[in-house]
């Protein structure tokens, strides 16, 4: 795609986008925390410290020298758990987004290119059914079949349900591109379907797909934490942000840090990816102001 004369290129526009810059900073902070966080913590995420973790009132201690973010209800180091949760959240969100984007992209392009044929009809009916399907049930079923819900289970479920919306958007975009003259021209020149798909369609839907993928990372972080929060996520004691929040909510009066720490982490990560996504959309959209 070419940018018009005198108009900044997408990269420059992205870098000039105030929201995008904030987003990049937030995402970088979360990634850095996931990498460095465990080194800052004094304990392992699963270890209970019954000596220094218990305060005078028999409650978990608040933020202190030994526990930078306080101790949780089992007197474990909140910071260590938060950092471990960050690794897990990012890993699950990024990998499930990769799965969802690949599947959604392929299905969307094929469906859009063959719009009106049985291929399109079949794929879109699958999408319809998938969107009407309660995904909690799917998580539980896969979890039960595998005996225990692990990070891989959640990754698979999120990846296999997350592509539905992507496929719809990519399909619409593909249909737009396909109707353009240069596609008709390359067909008239005798290019094969594969060549048209790979050289003309895919590069033109790649922009919207990148935006969708970025925002999908944000949604996946939320989805993973919702599942943990509802008790069908990754089995404890593995620390996840959603489960930490679930455990923390009963202590919001006595130990608010147990709610604030995972809550802030989720919002910062989700906000970061959403802002980057918006920045990308505005930078890539030729109509953007």
């Amino acid at each position: 795609m070419q940018s018009g004369r005198g108009r900044p290129r997408p990269r420059a526009r992205f870098l000039a986008h105030r929201g995008a810059r904030v987003g990049v900073a937030l995402v970088a902070a979360v990634v850095l925390f996931a990498l460095v966080g465990p080194m800052l913590a004094s304990h392992s995420p699963l270890a209970s410290d019954f000596v220094r973790g218990i305060g005078d009132d028999q409650m978990p201690v608040g933020p202190s020298r030994h526990f930078l973010l306080g101790a949780d209800r089992l007197f474990r180091d909140e910071l260590a758990r938060l950092a471990e949760g960050a690794r897990l959240s990012l890993f699950i969100a990024l990998s499930s987004t990769a799965v969802a984007t690949t599947v959604g992209g392929v299905v969307g392009v094929l469906s859009g290119y063959y719009a009106g044929t049985w291929v399109d009809a079949l794929l879109m009916r699958i999408v319809d059914v998938g969107l009407a399907f309660p995904f909690l049930l799917l998580v539980l079923a896969i979890g039960a079949a595998l005996d225990e819900t692990s990070a891989w289970t959640i990754l698979a479920v999120l990846g296999l349900t997350g592509w539905l919306g992507t496929a719809r958007v990519v399909r619409a975009k593909t249909m737009q591109v396909k109707a353009l003259d240069f596609v008709a021209a390359s067909r008239a020149l005798g290019q094969s379907t594969w060549a048209i798909l790979l050289r003309h369609i895919v590069p033109n839907v790649a922009g919207p797909l990148l935006v969708l993928a970025t925002m999908s990372v944000a949604q996946m972080i939320v989805a993973e934490s919702v599942l943990s929060y509802l008790g069908v996520g990754i089995a404890p004691p593995t620390p996840t942000w959603g489960h930490m929040l679930f455990e923390g909510q009963d202590y919001y009066a006595s130990a608010p840090w147990l709610l604030l720490a995972p809550g802030t982490a989720i919002v910062v990560a989700v906000l970061g990816f959403n802002l980057v996504g918006e920045g990308l959309r505005d930078a890539l959209d030729p109509r953007a102001l």
């Binding site: 929201g19 934490s225 919702v226 929040l245 009066a253 809550g263 919002v267 906000l271 959403n274 918006e278």
Partner: peptide, 22 residues
Amino acid sequence: SILGVSTPTFLLGVGLQFLLAH
């Protein structure tokens, strides 16, 4: 608006519960 869509409903819910009810 963007902060709102980035806040999971359960977090918002717990926050409102804390403020308005507790």
